[in-house]
Amino acid sequence: MAEPPTAGRGLVLTAKDVAKAYAGRPVLRGVSLELRAGERLALTGPSGSGKSTLLNCLGGVDRPDSGSICFKNQALELMDADGLTEVRRRDIGTIFQFFHLLPTLTAAENVELPLQLNGVARAERTDRVRSLLERVGVAGRSQALPGELSGGEMQRVAIARALAHAPAVLLADEPTGNLDSRNGAIILDLLQELSDETGTALLLVTHSGAATHICHREIHLRDGLISGVRKADTD
């Protein structure tokens, strides 16, 4: 595992006793965690353990039935739908297993979208998109539609899109789950580098052992409960 972030960095995200059930079936049964700026946290566990549900609650896409989630000292449960949208738009970047690039937008337009949503001026947007695409190594494919990109290229574009508006937290749901091992490794390296460069906190849902190695901590979920926490190896 990677080295832990410099001590004294502020808390970005706090979850306390978060519980959620679907159709009477409990999926999360009181999960608590903290995430600091620049920290990379791996969320692992078998299928059905509640990883994605927790990620959705932390990202403000879903609401917990009970418990509290604080994002930069703001309680998400007290926010209305527009407030949650505002948080997602401004402070959260999301990376999905199946990339979820918008199929009718070019790679550049996909990356530009969060900047547009945040009202960034056109000239600045153009510069930032260009530099991000260069940084993730797909500058030459900026005008390609998602259907014309390979899996690895799509996930690079997705990472660029997630980081475009410099969010405080990057939520990544199995970002390498749909890639071959070589491309998976490249993407993990990229996430680590970018997280270090930008100081963005990363919450990584993964099954992959390789993915946990880039994180400072690993939380293991089982049946909606935290069954174990592992800190970075120091050896």
Binding site: G59, V61, A81, D82, T85, E86, R88, R89, R90, I92, T94, F96, F98, H100, L102, P103, L113, P114, L117, N118, R161
Partner: peptide, 14 residues
């Protein structure tokens, strides 16, 4: 609908 969910995740309002 998956794209719409993505857009919602990216911060687009309803």
């Amino acid at each position: 609908r998956n794209d719409l969910a993505t857009l919602r995740a990216l911060g687009l309002r309803r």
